[in-house]
């Protein structure tokens, strides 16, 4: 069995947006490329999707800037799945939360239900769109587009059913955190804090 997720090492994220660019070209119709609202992965750090990141903490000269690359969290307990009236969105055995395009009626309930803003409406398909962990690439033996291209080497695809996974051990050791929002969603994305 596998259970996919991400470990994201924030000490190595340089806010270069290559994950966003790679994901967009890989997964979205060209007519959506110029629309920063339609993204399967975002770099949360202020105004959504727009460079440069701008959450800053502290006063000059002791300032810290925070960014968070956010793909879908592929939650263990996904609120989006519960609200789907037609069963189009579900969690697969390998942990990936997907939207089945043929079944989706585009009602948008799941967009509201997701506390992380991971879903959006794709106007070219009329359905809801989200990160599917590039399962088509994983199945072909490749890494997800964002993981493959990451310049700083911050994004890692991990298998939570593999206790020897290098990056899961790293996450343990370095006190990784999840963005839980006290909602009990149990995301499958762990962040290694930047300091």
């Amino acid at each position: 069995m596998v259970r996919y997720g991400f470990v994201i090492d924030l000490t190595r994220c340089i806010s270069c947006y290559s994950c966003v660019a790679a994901c967009t070209i890989e997964n979205l119709d060209p007519s959506l490329w110029d629309d920063s609202d339609k993204r399967r992965i975002r770099l949360r750090g202020g105004e959504d999707g727009v460079y440069p990141p701008r959450i800053e903490i502290g006063e000059y000269p002791n300032v810290m800037r925070i960014v968070l690359p956010m793909p879908c969290f592929h939650c263990e307990n996904p609120p989006c799945v519960k609200v789907c009236p037609v069963g189009a969105t579900y969690k697969r055995d390998d942990g990936v939360v997907i939207v089945e395009q043929e079944k989706c009626i585009g009602c948008g309930y799941c967009i509201v239900a997701c506390p992380y803003g991971s879903r959006f409406r794709n106007h070219t398909t009329g359905t809801v769109d989200k990160c599917n962990l590039c399962i088509h690439r994983i199945e072909a033996g490749e890494e997800p587009a964002c993981v493959e291209t990451c310049v700083g080497g911050a994004l890692h695809l991990v298998d939570f059913d593999n206790p020897n996974d290098k990056y899961i051990r790293e996450a343990f050791r370095r006190r990784a955190f999840k963005v839980e929002c006290e909602l009990g969603t149990q995301p499958a994305v762990y962040y290694i804090p930047s300091r």
Binding site: D37, D48, I111, S194, R195
Partner: peptide
């Protein structure tokens, strides 16, 4: 600092309302 950082991010996440 770490926590205030995470809290700041949560605030932003929640303030983003879907269309």
């Amino acid at each position: 600092v770490k926590i205030s950082g995470t809290a700041a991010i949560s605030t932003i996440l929640l303030s983003k309302f879907p269309e």
